[in-house]
């Protein structure tokens, strides 16, 4: 009896070890590539650390400087929030609209779906960013088109008032991944509900607002959270297309962080910026989840 218990205990231990053995590559990755560097960056954020010298502890000096003295930080926050608040709702609305169109079953629909998903695959790339620069530049295609219709042209990318909007348009254009998720969500809605609504004589708009949309709210919540987190970290497009200019009008947070770290080599300061971004994203996510009780409907 005792012996049997001992064996089963040992087996449990062994089983556990087996488990850890199999996930060990992931575990090593988690510790070496995520947790330890995160810990280090938290420490660096409390130091005066020029990349060419060794870090010197400075307490909350970086954070104080950021919050009390740094106008560029305020500007970067403004730009980033504007970007997130405008681009996320626009992108989701657009994605839902396209998903509604692609929901119908006609021949060759899968080809359409693939085509509309395409921009998401390539949209984050440097090549597309370079194309964008040429499309919306002062002698770009968009201006030429507007010009032929006699519409006054403007240098979208290089004017401080419009440059951010070109980045927002680029982000909206990459609606694919949200669209696919919406599409899956639409398919989850039971057909008989639509039939019942049709029998009751509900109009198309009424069906959309009173039925489709409420049924989709869990999906909308998911998409909102994912897109918000992503948008806060937007970097490539601003880096390639506008380099943050003109006059910092497209200096998104991640770009400012990059500049501090790798252009001005101020690692301590950049680490502090990174932790502030983490907290901002965390709070935003909590807020979205907090409000979700009021507008998300779960069937069960």
């Amino acid at each position: 009896m005792m012996n049997a218990m001992k064996i089963s205990k040992r087996n449990k231990l062994v089983d556990g070890l087996w488990g850890y053995a199999f996930i060990s590559p992931w575990l090593i990755g988690l510790f070496l590539l995520t947790l330890i560097p995160m810990g280090q960056s938290l420490y660096f954020s409390l130091t005066n650390y020029h990349l060419l010298e060794s870090p010197q502890f400075s307490g909350l000096g970086n954070y104080k400087e950021i919050f009390m003295n740094d106008q560029t930080f305020t500007q970067a926050l403004k730009v980033t929030f504007l970007y997130v608040f405008v681009s996320v709702p626009l992108k989701l609305a657009f994605a839902l609209g396209v998903a509604m169109l692609l929901y119908k079953s006609i021949k060759g629909m899968s080809i359409f779906r693939a085509v509309y998903y395409l921009p998401s695959l390539i949209g984050g790339s440097v090549a597309i960013a370079a194309i964008w620069r040429n499309l919306f530049g002062y002698d770009g295609l968009v201006n030429k088109l507007l010009g032929t219709f006699g519409i006054p042209t403007t240098d979208f990318i290089n004017m401080p008032n419009t440059s951010l909007s070109t980045l927002i348009v680029l982000s909206v254009w990459q609606f694919g991944s949200s669209m696919v998720i919406f599409l899956a969500g639409l398919k989850q809605i039971p057909k008989d509900l639509y039939e019942a609504a049709a029998v009751d004589g509900a109009s198309k708009t009424r069906i959309f607002f009173k039925m489709t949309l409420p049924m989709l709210t869990p999906i909308i919540l998911f998409n909102t959270v994912m897109q918000t987190i992503n948008s806060f970290q937007m970097f490539t497009q601003a880096f390639v297309i506008t380099k943050g200019g003109p006059i910092d009008s497209t200096l998104v947070y991640a770009l400012y962080l990059y500049q501090k770290a790798f252009v001005f080599f101020d690692m301590g300061y950049a680490s502090a910026l990174a932790w502030i971004l983490l907290v901002i994203i965390g709070i935003s996510t909590v807020i979205i989840f907090g409000t979700s009780k009021k507008w998300v409907h779960y069937e069960n």
Binding site: L17, Y20, A21, F22, P25, I28, G29
Partner: peptide, 13 residues
């Protein structure tokens, strides 16, 4: 054995 596997995967890493 588990230790062996762990060390092999560490090696691969």
């Amino acid at each position: 054995k588990p230790l062996l596997i762990a060390s092999i995967s560490a090696l691969l890493m």
